[in-house]
């Protein structure tokens, strides 16, 4: 209760995305690729889930990368090296297992899904798999973790909305070309906005390539106690914090997942507006 979690490094990756290394030795020691943490910034704060983007058991630190979308992530963005976060719990969720016989793995990532995809591809690369990736974003600036990804992938393709990096278009446009040309790819991992994961899965189903996704529903406790995080997979209700966050993408009901993400939209807007009235402007690029 009295222990707090220190921010030991902060980096600004682009105008809306920040990275932090947090001192949390127990989490760093047990973390595995695909798992996440739940943080609560201060005593009136909410519990929000963030993927573990990297971890260093020796230093006892865990890396998080977050996009500022609402009150909690904007508030987090105003904290600096040396500041503390009140609660930081994890690692939560299952970790990822890839079939031994997979020949070539393709990662497809968008937005803050890219750093979430990174530890998975890094581990697969270290285990000797052949790994490639398609990364996408609004423009070059918004495609983060390029260097890290290039270090663990045999090849990285890019897609941006404005064509400033790689192909102009969506990751699925590149995906189509890659799948047409490279018949060795037999396992796909995709992490990003739900709509992107939905479209990727639609395409990979046509090619009959097993695809796993990392779901990001609303959460409260993250320990299986509340059911806020439920989604439907193959017609069955699953709790993402316990049964996931990784699922067979061809079985996920993405439309339901998108609807459920909107459950508190009105309140989230109120919360953000109040926050911005009091902290006008100081959330930009700090």
């Amino acid at each position: 209760m009295c222990d707090m979690y220190k921010i030991v490094r902060k980096e600004i990756l682009n105008p809306v995305v920040k990275l932090m290394d947090i001192e949390a030795p127990r989490v760093a020691k047990s973390a595995k690729p695909g798992q996440f943490v739940i943080i609560r910034i201060y005593d009136k704060g909410e519990r929000i889930p963030l993927t573990i983007a990297d971890y260093d058991p020796e230093k006892g630190t865990v890396t998080i990368v977050f996009q500022e979308v609402g009150k909690s992530t904007k508030l987090l963005g105003t904290l600096n090296e040396g500041d503390y976060i009140l609660d930081f719990v994890g690692p939560l969720g299952n970790f990822m297992e890839v079939p031994k016989e997979a020949r070539k793995i393709l990662g497809v990532g968008g937005g803050v899904g890219i750093p979430a995809l990174y530890p998975k591809l890094k581990m697969l690369h270290q285990e000797g798999y052949r790994v490639e990736a398609i990364l996408g974003g609004r423009s070059e600036e918004y495609v983060i973790f390029k260097k890290e990804m290039e270090a663990v992938c045999d090849k990285v393709y890019y897609a941006t909305d404005d064509g400033t990096l790689g192909k102009k278009g969506f990751v699925t446009d590149v995906l189509k070309e890659v799948l047409e040309n490279d018949k060795e790819i037999d396992y796909i991992i995709t992490v990003g906005p739900v709509i992107m994961m939905k479209n990727v899965c639609k395409m990979t189903k046509e090619y009959n390539i097993p695809t796993i996704v990392s779901m990001n529903p609303l959460m409260v406790d993250g320990t299986g106690m509340c059911g806020a995080c439920r989604i439907e997979v193959g017609g069955e209700t699953k709790f993402v914090c316990m049964d996931g966050p990784i699922f067979d993408g061809h079985l996920v009901n993405f439309d339901l997942a998108m609807t459920r993400l909107n459950m508190f939209k009105k309140q989230e807007k109120v919360s953000l507006e109040l926050y911005e009235q009091h902290h006008g402007g100081d959330h930009h690029g700090r």
Binding site: K44, G45, E46, R47, K71, S72, V220, D221, M225, C226, G227, A228, M263, F264, K266, Q267, E268, V270, S271, L274
Partner: peptide, 24 residues
């Protein structure tokens, strides 16, 4: 009921927006 009560009791959603956790 666990989600509903946890939002209210543990997270104090009945005091939203003073507390950040919402409830609808």
């Amino acid at each position: 009921a666990n989600e509903f009560l946890t939002r209210i009791n543990l997270m104090k959603a009945y005091k939203f927006p003073e507390y950040d956790t919402p409830i609808v």
